[in-house]
Design a protein around this nucleic acid. Structure first.
Lengths: 180, 180
DNA sequence: CCCAGTCAAGACTAAAATGGTCGGAGATTC
DNA sequence: GAATCTCCGACCATTTTAGTCTTGACTGGG
């Protein structure tokens, strides 16, 4: 982390309490749902697999999230072949693959769509659309950032979210803050 | 990166052309402006410093961005002591510190505000507001992600954006895409 | 002094993204 | 085969973002 010593001494030492990456509710819900499905379908109790189909309602109630919205999220996930739907009574969803084979990056991409770090990135051929191209020297380093983030998110899977979290860490971090 | 082999063979091998981190236009403009100011004020030509005050209009025209919006962005940066304003004719802005002492994280924080990765994060005491707290096992691993991203953005500065970019890389990356 | 050029600050509008809702269509079980 | 439970896809409302406009204050030069 860079040693920040600005002109102002006290004013420029900005401390912020958690910053930046904004994840949409939908993506958030998607990850919650997948994590829940994973623990149910790949966990075990007393040596017995706890596998069963889970439906939208169950997940929604368990996590206190709006049923219909979650439904839409799950639909999207199904369309992207991350989960498989099963219709009718006793129906619901099951994971389409093992938790370790579903990366967080994939989930976010499925929900949020292929968004570039800046708008002019995800258009394949439409270079002309970005009339700042010539002067935007920013792009390359930001690309580096994006690359790192994508790599990070790609290397983390639903499996990594299955362990019980030590909630205390969240709390202490909160108070601690992050120095930029 | 995880080896993704889904149930479907061809369909589930999603290739996306750059994903995820969404930066707002304003933040984008801020970085452009700072990068431009840095090259002007800390660059040199034939051994001579090219230092001079630059104004909003110049930056806006150079990068083809709306003048008024950029003005507002620069005001914000000034308010956060990243640049210093100079009023009157021949006025404009100068960087308040060296480019290496302005991290990308700081810039984003100044523009976007202290946004947490999920909404329930940036409220210090209002725990009750997130009624999903008990079940949101997602949090901890996402926090890890966020931490890494913040660290990454904190370790990169305006100075890192000053070199001329090999644009060809951007192009090839575009076609290549990123495998999740 | 007066004027042109600059930043500062706010209200305002338009468009897009997001969050959330509704009434079906299709399966499964009894 | 009908009731019921599920997914599905179009729809609306709210919020956020991008961008515009107006007014005012400050500075330096003619």
């Amino acid at each position: 982390m860079p040693n920040v010593r600005g002109a102002g001494t006290e004013k420029s030492r900005i401390i912020i309490y958690l910053v930046m990456l904004k994840i949409s509710k939908k993506a958030d819900y998607a990850l919650m749902a997948l994590q829940y499905m994973a623990t149910v379908q790949y966990g075990e109790m007393n040596g017995l697999s706890t596998f069963r189909v889970v439906n939208t309602k169950e997940i929604a109630e368990e996590h206190h999230i709006p049923l219909e919205l979650l439904a839409k999220v799950l639909q999207t996930l199904a369309k992207h072949d991350m989960i498989e739907s099963q219709n009718g009574p006793k129906g619901g969803y099951i994971l389409a693959r093992e938790p370790r084979d579903i990366s967080i990056a994939q989930v976010l991409a499925a929900i949020e769509g292929p968004l570039g770090i800046a708008d002019c990135y995800h258009e394949k051929d439409d270079h002309a659309s970005c009339d700042q191209m010539e002067h935007c020297n920013i792009r390359t380093p930001l690309l580096k950032v994006q690359e790192s983030i994508v790599h990070l998110l790609s290397s983390m899977s639903i499996e990594d979210m299955m362990e019980e979290p030590p909630l205390i860490i969240v709390e202490s971090r909160k108070k601690e803050g992050v120095q930029l």
